[in-house]
Write a protein that binds this DNA or RNA. Structure first.
Lengths: 219, 219
DNA sequence: ATATTTTTTTAGACAAGCCTAAAACTTAAA
DNA sequence: TTTAAGTTTTAGGCTTGTCTAAAAAAATAT
């Protein structure tokens, strides 16, 4: 089935919200993510359910069906492959890629994506540390721990970022934090939940908000 | 001004038809090119004129304005740069690129197109021999002579193709005719206007239809 | 258990682009 | 020059996806 640009965006949004809330995605959350109003979302959920891309009962939120998940992961695959291309070959900074990849992800051509994957050397992760689904829509979601939830004193590495807005990524560049950087929480400041961290042997302080948008894996 | 996908396609179509008929583009021709109906074209011409992208008087056909021309050439620039990318780096065959480039040409990002151009080494022509407009929308339309109109006996080279449908391009591949191939018309067959040609030292016969879709430049 | 607040859905409109059918205009032919 | 044929435009409708305002349902608080 041929999906529209808009339908693809909804499926992708549902996928992302479902990761954080596996019990079902609310209309409001979806409206926020897709930058529309709840009423518009209601309409669209009805249509997606009609096409059997999601499970949806009125007032009960939405969940992706098998085919909906497949479609969502294919869009995400394309998005992330394009991000790799932009960063590795067109020297985009990691904070510049998102907007363009949002457009490129909707290009319809199996051959294109196959050849792009080959050209890039079958990358496993995008520039933000997120895994790239394979051509069958299989993805290995690496268990991600938010830095804000991580144990004080343990060695870890930055494995991905949650936010990918330019402002946040530029801040990370500024403090020289990137995918793979070594990190240890040295102390939690009870007052505002900010953290004193050791980042590649430099001591610095980051806010709770920042810590909530960095994923780490234990060393 | 931000143009829609559809508007960009109309402007591109008008540009292409205007090349062949500089006195103005008819509604019917445009409908054919954009695969819509004349009534839809009438509507759209009104809107494009409103936005001052074209000059348009009822029943008098359309012509691109300065800004319309600029927009059309930017779309064509993007189309042709993407074609080069697909052929040179993703090993697409020249008959496979068109459909994908039709989508890629609408991606909106100045940075992207700038970086792509750089990545490709500032190419001057696309894989079909057509010139690529520069970033200011300037294009050098090389004087093209149709093979069907060319002098018998004179040496020439294939410089571009008019048609770029897969079937036609595959036929050219089959007879090993490509951009740059040497060609001489040996004899015109009066019966059906077919041609006996010498193509890179091989003698063969091609139909008038084929000869009408190959551009040559005198040696 | 009831009342209030919040969330979600429905109803009715709107814009972009497309269509068909009919009317208006232009061009070509008689 | 009048008629016929062809082209273009208008009128009215349809679809997709959006919106606001109002109604309905669910969640929360009293």
């Amino acid at each position: 089935m041929e999906l529209s640009f808009v339908e693809e965006n909804y499926l992708k949004a549902i996928y992302q919200l479902e990761l954080e809330n596996p019990s079902g995605v609310s209309t409001t959350a979806l409206a926020e993510k897709t930058k529309t109003k709840p009423a518009s979302v209601s309409d669209m959920l009805k249509k997606l359910a009609q096409k059997e891309l999601i499970f949806y009962k009125k007032y009960q939120g939405a969940k992706l069906s098998k085919s909906g998940l497949q479609a969502a992961l294919l869009v995400i695959r394309k998005h992330r492959l394009w991000e790799v291309f932009l960063v590795k070959h067109l020297s985009f900074a990691w904070d510049e890629v998102h907007e363009v990849a949002e457009q490129l992800e909707h290009i319809k051509s199996n051959l294109l994506i196959k050849r792009l994957d080959q050209f890039l050397g079958y990358p496993k992760e995008d520039p933000h540390g997120d895994p790239i689904p394979n051509e069958n829509g299989e993805i290995i979601e690496i268990p991600k721990i938010l830095l804000s939830d991580f144990t004080t004193g343990k060695k870890a590495q930055i494995s991905a970022v949650k936010e990918s807005s330019p402002l946040f990524l530029q801040y990370l560049d500024k403090i020289k934090a990137g995918i793979g950087s070594n990190i240890i929480i040295q102390e939690r400041i009870a007052f505002d939940n900010s953290l004193e961290i050791l980042l590649d042997d430099r001591t610095l302080y980051i806010s709770e908000e920042v810590a909530k948008n960095i994923y780490v894996t234990e060393d």
